[in-house]
Design a protein around this nucleic acid. Structure first.
Lengths: 107, 107
DNA sequence: TTGACATATCGTTACATTACGATATATTAA
DNA sequence: TTAATATATCGTAATGTAACGATATGTCAA
């Protein structure tokens, strides 16, 4: 076998990408928003349903959802008086799995 | 017996766990800290080395490292005047991979 | 129409986070 | 010992974020 590399290979990612990743992670880094992501990974929900599950007022839920929509995690569709949110970012499931396996799964 | 209500199965995680997960994610959600995690996943580095790579002053690097040490991501060992940091949380590699695959990897 | 309901937005306030400069501690060399 | 180096900590100021109440918008039913 060859000798061990003396120089560590530089990890991937340019500075701007780190800034963008950090911004999106910051959006994710809120207990109510994490819960919303987890729920929406299972299907679509209205603002009111999400608000109730998360025990926050509707307007607070709406603001959280707007944040996550702005960064591309979700999109929404109005149906009558209700607005349904759903996951738009395919990598969310992956990331959420990682988070669950570390923090959320009971042993 | 009343059979199952046709509810969607509730995703895993109690409220306190979401709070803890959110706190740790918030620590991760900073461009300099993300870069440090990426570097330290490859080996151990001193405060000064990390500071230089990240283009921040030593004291700023030291504060970022302290944060990440407090939440269990890293630990440190002094060797002479230097202090080497290294990854202590096994799930960090996993989570970082998810983040890289979404945000950091060039196509 | 009007009223009720669902959601969104705005203004404000309270609180958290960040970076910075100054200073403190720890270690080694002279 | 003193000086130099490496890291850590502290006080502070600037900025960002979160929640709240009030209000606005959009939709439907009567």
């Amino acid at each position: 076998m060859v000798a061990k590399p003396k120089k560590k290979s530089r990890p991937v990612g340019d500075p701007a990408a780190f800034a963008q990743a950090a911004e999106c992670l910051k959006i994710l880094a809120h207990p109510v928003r994490l819960r919303m992501v987890q729920l929406l990974l299972q299907g679509r929900y209205t603002v009111g349903e999400l608000a109730e599950d998360c025990s926050v007022p509707d307007n607070v839920a709406s603001e959280h959802l707007r944040l996550m929509q702005r960064c591309g995690f979700f999109n929404s569709e109005r149906e009558g008086r209700r607005v349904y949110y759903q996951v738009a970012e395919p990598h969310l499931a992956n990331i959420m799995e990682c988070i669950e396996s570390r923090f959320l799964q009971k042993k």
